[in-house]
Every structure is written in C-alpha cells, then in structure tokens.
Design a protein around this nucleic acid. Structure first.
Lengths: 228, 228
DNA sequence: TGCAACCGGATTTTCGAAAGAATTTGGAAT
DNA sequence: ATTCCAAATTCTTTCGAAAATCCGGTTGCA
C-alpha cells in the first residue's frame, strides 16, 4: 500500500468520524506532521477526496473539510432513498443464496452489537456493522454504479449521524433494530414492494430523527469549526 | 487556474472524447510530454479522475484509462434513467421562469446545430449543446447530489456515444430532435408524468441504438487499446 | 481620517531528482 | 529448447527545495 493510499484512508476516516471538523482548513504542514509523510501523497489523497466531496478545494488557497448543512443532509438522504430502493429491488431480483446468507449474517452481527451495553458497547463497531448490513441488502443489485453512489452517499450521511450517536442524542420510542429485522425479512421473502417501502420508511425516520437531534443541539453539530 | 486543474480538464476531455483510448496506460513521462508539465500536477489530476472512475489506478503500477464494456453502458444508462427522471420531476416542481427560459434557449441552440450539415456540422458543438440541453432540464431540481451524479453518468455514457457519432453509425428512422422537442414541451407544460416517461423512452432508445451500433461494429469501439 | 500600494511571512503549488518497485533482458544451467 | 535467476531497465512514488501566490499589517500620501 502506497503512502498516498494510506493518506486517503486516514483522511477519509478522520473526516467521516468528525475528528477533522467540518470547515476546518487542511494545511499541508499540519497534515504532514499528523500523518508523518511529505506533501505529495497528501495532496493526492486530498484530490481524491475533493472528487468525493468530502474535501473542498479552492485554487491556490488549499483544502478544507467539506462543511455540513441541514439542506445537504436532506438532499443526500432523499437521493439515498431513490437509489437504494431501486438497488434493493434489483438485489431481490438477482440475489442468490450467498446474498441471502450475507444479509442474515450481517443482521445477526449488527443485532449482537446493538444489544451490548456499557463497556462492550462500541459505537464504531456498531457503525461498521450497520454499514455492512445496508451494503449486504444491496450487494446483489449487480450495478457497480449504484454501489458506488450508495457508498458515496453513505459516507456523506454518516458524517451527520456520528456526532448525534456520540451525543447519544437519539430520540427514544423507536426500535431501530426491529426496523432492520423487518426490512431483512421482507427482503429475504423477496417481497420487493414491502422491502423498499420499509427501507424508505426507515430512512425517512432516520432523517427526521437526525434533523430533530441537530435542531435540539442548536445546530452545533453542523457548525463550521474553522479551527480545531 | 493551477496546472493541476488544467491537467484535470485536459485529461478528462481527452478521455471522454476517446483521444486517450480505453485501457491505454497513462505513463507519467508521456503525459508530462503531452501536456507540458511536471509529474505533480498530473498525478493530482489522475487521482481526481480515478475517484470519478474515468481512470483506473493500480498500486505501484500507475494509471490507465478506464475500459469500456457493454455491461457498464447498460448499468450507467439504467441509473441515468432512475436519477434523471427523479431530477426532472423535482425540476418541474421547483422550476421558475429562468429555468424554463433556459430550456427553451438550450433546445433552440441544439436544434440549430443539429440542422447544420457539411462544413458547418460539428460534432463537438452538437455534443456540448446536447449536454447543455439535458442539464437545463434538470437544473431546477435543487439537488446538488443529483446534479453531480448526472454529470458523472453523463461523462461515463458520453464515452460510448462519441465513437458511434464519429463513425456516423446512428441508425436511421429515429428523429432525435423531435424527441428532444416533445420532452421540452412536456417539461414546460409541467407534466411531470409525461416528461419523465418521454425521458425514459428517449434513453431506452439511445441505449438500444448505441448497443446496436457497437454490435454492428463488432465491439471494436469498446476494445481495450493497450497502445494507442 | 481614508485609501492604496507595498512589504514580510505563511501557504500552496510545482519542479527535479532520488528512492523504490515492477518488468524485461540476457545468460547460464538443466 | 526451457527454466530460472540476476542485472539492467523502465516506471512509479516520494521527498525537499524553489517558485508563485495569498494574507495581514504597515507605511506613505492625499
């Protein structure tokens, strides 16, 4: 693995998790220090991330972490619904036993982690398994373009979810794991209409909850932090 | 404009037009000669294009122009239909007079160019206006993510259209300009159902024609040209 | 005071060379 | 003739420094 690839992974990771705050300028000298490498691999990684809209670039003024906004959250989630319901239908059409087993396994692992509390609870493990579950649902759609856009939008929206999860600011009265199970069941039953309706509903609730949590937080989660 | 940005524009342009053939290795020394700049700006541009799937990269083995395949054409066009019909409905919902005027103007300019023959006919002008027309239809969708994916998929599918246009291998018996006019009319009439149906139909015909032309050409258009 | 030009430091961008990795070549042994 | 190994070559990747640009503050002038 080249340094540029390491830089890409590390920067992407740190941006999505919010360790590099939205709006923060990404100075090459700082990054060089932080990641222990020269400018060239960092610039290559930043250019890739720019194309993915995780980083913004301005000519001769360098790079900064892409900002967040409620508008973008709504935009990205609305498009996720369009693309993922379509991909789910295709997946249900094409999926074989390996695909179905993948869903069962991903759901099981997700439920295990979701049930853990206290020291065993780990938001990053939970997040990874949540991602894996949603990917497993779509995995058989047989469309590289859909999968790419799924990954792009997942990363974009994860940036909103993570600070909310960290603040444990999720509204009660919602059984997310039950939604996941129902979604998996409808998918495994090859009921495309029901499965995509459940997925749509799942995401509508998610975006409502996120928007609510952000409002409750006075938008601090989104606030552009120029330094830090 | 920095050299890296110039390199990005030039490479993107040359890849989409097929001047850099699918599959061709992109050696830094060659590119440096071709575009008259050092390695750094070229590598930055290549990394951006890699993220856009116009270029493929392999660790320590450099870059090559992304290959073409019938499968990818079908995949990309199918997703264009999903995204653009959605964007068109949203555009019809939000569009104001400036948006409507933009469509009229883009359609007029496209028709002018499409009517020209002989020395006045210019495939690149035609292509630019075709792109501008389709963009104008969606311009009011108010979704940066949809517009980005539209641009990505347009670029991806343009790579298949251009060699066919250059070979003038379009099947007769289809009045593409009439389809554009009808589509514009339904859109301006704010008939979302009819407009998206026409757009869907327009693209289904396009993909059929392209696939047919490529088959007639024995797939030579897609053939990976390792040297070229 | 208001304003424009200008300097100095900070930062990005680019280059050229060195380092590192893969591929090819050529030759020796089987 | 074929296989294997090592040297040579080609190419990518990375670094460090030089060039270009931006930003903030200050000076000079009306």
């Amino acid at each position: 693995m080249t340094l540029a690839e390491k830089a890409y992974d590390a920067l992407r990771h740190d941006i999505i998790r919010g360790e590099l705050a939205p709006g923060r300028p990404l100075r090459l000298a700082d990054l060089s220090q932080r990641y222990g490498m020269g400018f060239s691999p960092l610039r290559e990684a930043l250019n890739r991330l720019q194309a993915e809209r995780l980083v913004m670039a301005e000519s001769l003024r360098g790079f900064r972490v892409a900002p967040l906004s409620l508008d973008e959250l709504h935009d990205a989630m609305a498009l996720r619904i369009v693309i993922e319901t379509e991909a789910l239908k295709a997946s249900i059409g094409h999926g074989d036993d390996a695909w179905a087993s993948g869903i069962v396994s991903a759901l099981y692992a997700l439920n295990l982690q979701a049930a853990r509390t206290g020291g065993e609870a780990n938001i990053w493990t939970l997040e990874a398994r949540h991602h894996a579950f949603h990917r497993a649902l779509l995995a058989a759609c047989n469309s590289p373009w859909m999968m790419e856009f799924f990954e792009r939008l997942y990363a974009a929206t994860e940036r909103y979810r993570i600070p909310v999860l960290l603040a444990a600011a999720l509204p009660a009265g919602r059984d997310v794991q039950a939604e996941h199970s129902a979604l998996a069941q409808a998918t495994l039953d090859r009921d495309a209409g029901k499965a995509s309706a459940l997925l749509d509903q799942h995401y509508r609730r998610t975006v409502d909850d996120l928007a609510e949590a952000i409002r409750a937080n006075d938008g601090d989660i989104l606030r552009v932090r120029l330094f830090g």
